[in-house]
């Protein structure tokens, strides 16, 4: 490769910026397993795998959950290009609280890549059933790729909770 050609390639990369963004984002893709010892205590769930897939501006966040014999697999698909409305938005709830997804409710979701694609930010206003009727839970979530790319940290803030929920995941290398 000549010196001139290298310069041309560099200029192209800077102009489009595509590889610099797409590459880290795709690093979030894959299966991640909760490390309970390094996470906020889950209540009512004993296992949690997070499966992330990126398709253009759409990011699917699949939650494979387990509690005793109960297994649930639920996917939230968010769009980093525009706000979206998600039916049956799944929230990893503390199951010993009387808070339930509102039946038939839809959730307004905004998502964006941050930190040159190493962080996915998701903001959601989700309707929940409470004993007094219905309320809106405002959620702020950041899925952050940790240095070394083998770990993922999920930081979850609620408008109504005085402290963050912090979950740490380890990448699962799946056999081919």
């Amino acid at each position: 490769m000549t010196h001139r050609f290298r310069r041309l390639l560099f200029v192209l990369l800077v102009i489009t910026g595509l590889p610099a963004q797409a590459e880290p984002a795709s690093l979030l893709a894959g299966r991640w397993r909760l490390d309970p010892a390094r996470s906020t205590a889950l209540d009512g769930w004993t296992a949690w795998d997070l499966v992330i897939a990126v398709d253009g501006s759409r990011v699917s966040l699949r939650h494979d959950m387990q509690w005793r014999a109960t297994k649930r697999s639920v996917t939230n698909t968010v769009d980093t290009a525009a706000p979206s409305v998600v039916p049956d938005f799944f929230r990893v709830e503390q199951r010993h609280m009387a808070l339930y997804p509102a039946k038939g409710g839809t959730t307004a979701v905004r998502a964006a890549w941050l930190d040159a694609g190493r962080t996915l930010r998701v903001e959601a206003d989700t309707p929940i059933e409470i004993s007094q009727g219905q309320a809106t839970l405002r959620l702020y979530l950041e899925y952050r790729l940790v240095e070394g790319d083998g770990s993922l940290v999920l930081i979850e803030l609620h408008r109504t909770r005085p402290q963050p929920l912090v979950y740490r995941f380890t990448r699962v290398i799946e056999a081919k």
Binding site: A41, D43, A98, L99, Q163
Partner: peptide, 26 residues
Amino acid sequence: SYEYYIDPRRPRAEVSADLNELIALN
């Protein structure tokens, strides 16, 4: 009905946060 169930293994700080969240939402 019960609004909350205290699991004896749940960290006390999280129990307080759970209850405060129920209080804030209701």
